[in-house]
Design a protein around this nucleic acid. Structure first.
Lengths: 149, 149
DNA sequence: AGAAACCCTGTAGTTACTACAGAGTCAAGG
DNA sequence: CCTTGACTCTGTAGTAACTACAGGGTTTCT
């Protein structure tokens, strides 16, 4: 099948498929006489594998490694569980920070009254006030990454 | 104060500060005779405001808008609560998908036994099996019927 | 035949930073 | 005074994972 068909079968953009090929994740397929890529089921499976891993937020570099393991069943796979552990830790950390973020945003949202003049906007006041508080060096450094990451 | 001092005061990288200036978020400051940037407390407050918004995952383009409201207190601020609502919706959606992801990864992690050969790795088997027949929660596009070529 | 959809390669853009490179300035120490 | 390391400057490029052209060729359908 051609690239468009592969894309439809796997629910992936053709440009993403080309991107994966260029990145080395997908092997370059055979070509028809007109130069079009000609894919078979092997590519489809591999692409599905990649997309499934991506859905698990596994970085492409790690997906590459997993694919190598698939290709070499006799290789030592001691790192795979560690990879999943790393992902799990990341997800849990992110969940934690997002929950805090949701709480902050909800609180901020609650400050919006019926007023529609910027000078009287509770949200804006709160954002400015927060900036004032943080701008005071007595309160230490505000590190957004710890919340937003 | 110089850029390094501003960065320390706000807990921001000097390169990020220059980035913000270039992006138009921070006004270009006065310069000393040697060409160094000379900042005052106004910049510090504005930077803190920006960082606080970033901590709330507010995109820079929206931070820019908020800053404009701060500068024009008489402007209609009808969009600000909507901005926060949009952020809240994003955060909640992301929370939902991350929870599903955590569940999947935990399940996947549970498949790892004591084996350390790739060919016998439960995690790898599951990833490959998923590519064959299962749509994951976040992916959703892959359907077995489209396997037919 | 013509138009639209598909394909190709190569380049550039998105978002929010982050990291140089090469050169100038400053402050402390020998 | 000189040296050295830290700081500053502007400009460019890179990061991750795509996504969107541009310009040109091929296929399919009306």
């Amino acid at each position: 099948m051609r690239i468009g068909e592969l894309g439809q079968a796997a629910g992936v953009d053709v440009e993403t498929i080309r991107f994966y090929e260029k990145s080395g994740l997908l092997p370059a397929p055979a070509r028809s006489e007109n130069g079009y890529r000609a894919y078979g089921s092997t590519h489809l499976e591999r692409l599905a594998f990649i997309r499934h891993c991506r859905a698990l937020d596994i970085p492409l570099s790690e997906v590459q490694r997993l694919l190598e393991f698939v290709e070499h069943p006799n290789a030592d796979c001691g790192d795979i569980d560690q990879l999943i552990d790393t992902q799990l830790a990341k997800v849990r950390a992110r969940l934690k920070s997002l929950k805090a973020l949701e709480k902050q945003l909800s609180s901020l949202r609650g400050r919006c009254g019926a007023k529609h003049i910027a000078g009287e906007c509770g949200i804006l006041h709160e954002l400015v006030a927060a900036a004032h508080k943080e701008a005071c060096v007595c309160h230490g450094h505000f590190e957004p990454k710890t919340l937003a990451t």
